[in-house]
Computed example of a mutant assay.
Amino acid sequence: MALILVTGASTGLGHNTASALADDGHDVVVHIRNQARLKEADDIAQWKGVVIGDLTELDETRDVARQASRFGRFDAVIHNAGTMQSSEAAAVNTVAPYVLTALMDKPARLIYLSSSMHRSGSTDLRRLTAGAASYSDSKLWVTTLALAFASRWNGTSSHAVDPGWVPTRMGGAGAPDDLTAGHQTQVRLATHPDVTPVTGGYWYHQQVQTPHPAAQDEDFQAHLIDVLESHTGVPLD
């Protein structure tokens, strides 16, 4: 049995991921954006716990890290929370995963949600600090973080996952990918004893693929971390 945190778990892929993990007998802590989302939930009893905070706000993201840390060291953290709104994309899709990773005890496994759209993202990090990032930009950057963390800490693996374009509230009812396949890779990476590669994979439907070259570029990885440290005031160990 593993202790697992899933961010953005009130609906969609995050909720499906958390539910599948709980059904498998794991202790699942879910993150949701606000109390209104909590009131909408009808399955609170299946969770080990709930943490609440708006990941568009740096102070609230810090508080989410504090709330989560009360449960102890997680076996896995799945950074699922995401948005396609340009005004919030960098904060939710890149900055929040960075801050949570930097502030929480390092889990055995880190999983970050990417997207096939990361391949059209920009490496111009002035867009991050200027609040001008697109969804694609933010997904390139979080994929870069996932691969940067892959060899950073002993005892911690890190992967990025493209869940596909699935029919959730964010993906839309007409999305062509399979909804169940959208969370199966995250569940496997969080819990399966035999994952190959052990760390540093970019995954789509349980298969490893090649990401944007910048995501594997060590110089760009280091530059992104430097920018995020300066932008947030949160250093990375």
Rank of each mutant, 00 (worst) to 15 (best):
V92E: 08
S116I: 13
R66P: 00
G172W: 06
A102E: 14
G49M: 09
H231R: 07
M84G: 09
Q206R: 15
G14P: 15
F74P: 04
H192Y: 11
K139G: 00
S134G: 04
T232P: 08
V64D: 01
A96V: 09
G25F: 00
A20G: 04
G172M: 03
Q209R: 14
Q186Y: 01
G8W: 02
V77E: 09
V161C: 05
I52Q: 05
R62V: 02
I225P: 02
Q46D: 09
T17F: 13
A222W: 03
V51Y: 04
A36R: 13
L140I: 00
S116R: 15
M117K: 14
T83M: 05
Y202S: 02
P197W: 04
Q207N: 13
Q209A: 15
A190G: 01
G53N: 10
S86D: 12
A160V: 11
I44V: 15
G8E: 02
V64Q: 09
L147T: 09
Y98Q: 10
L125N: 05
P197R: 02
A133H: 08
A22T: 06
R127F: 07
A36F: 08
E40M: 14
L147K: 09
H15Q: 10
T168D: 05
D105P: 15
A36W: 08
H26V: 03
T123I: 15
R70C: 03
Q67Y: 02
V99K: 00
S136M: 03
S19R: 14
S120Q: 13
A2R: 11
G72W: 13
Y112M: 06
L113S: 06
D124Y: 07
A222P: 08
F220Q: 12
D75K: 02
T180L: 13
A214E: 04
I52W: 08
V30W: 06
P97H: 05
E229P: 10
T168S: 06
Q207S: 12
G200A: 14
I32W: 05
R70A: 08
P213L: 00
A146S: 14
Q207A: 11
P167Y: 03
H15S: 07
S157Y: 09
T7C: 01
N80I: 00
S19T: 15
T56M: 07
F71L: 04
I78W: 10
R119H: 12
L189Q: 11
R188H: 09
L103D: 14
A76V: 08
P213S: 07
G121P: 12
D75A: 00
G53D: 12
A65E: 01
A222S: 11
Y204C: 12
L3P: 04
Y98V: 00
I225F: 08
A18I: 01
P211H: 10
S86E: 12
G201R: 04
A181I: 10
E57T: 05
A173K: 12
D237R: 13
D162H: 11
L55M: 15
L228Y: 06
Q85F: 09
A20Y: 10
L55K: 15
D75F: 01
T83L: 07
T196L: 01
H31P: 08
W203S: 14
V92I: 13
A89N: 13
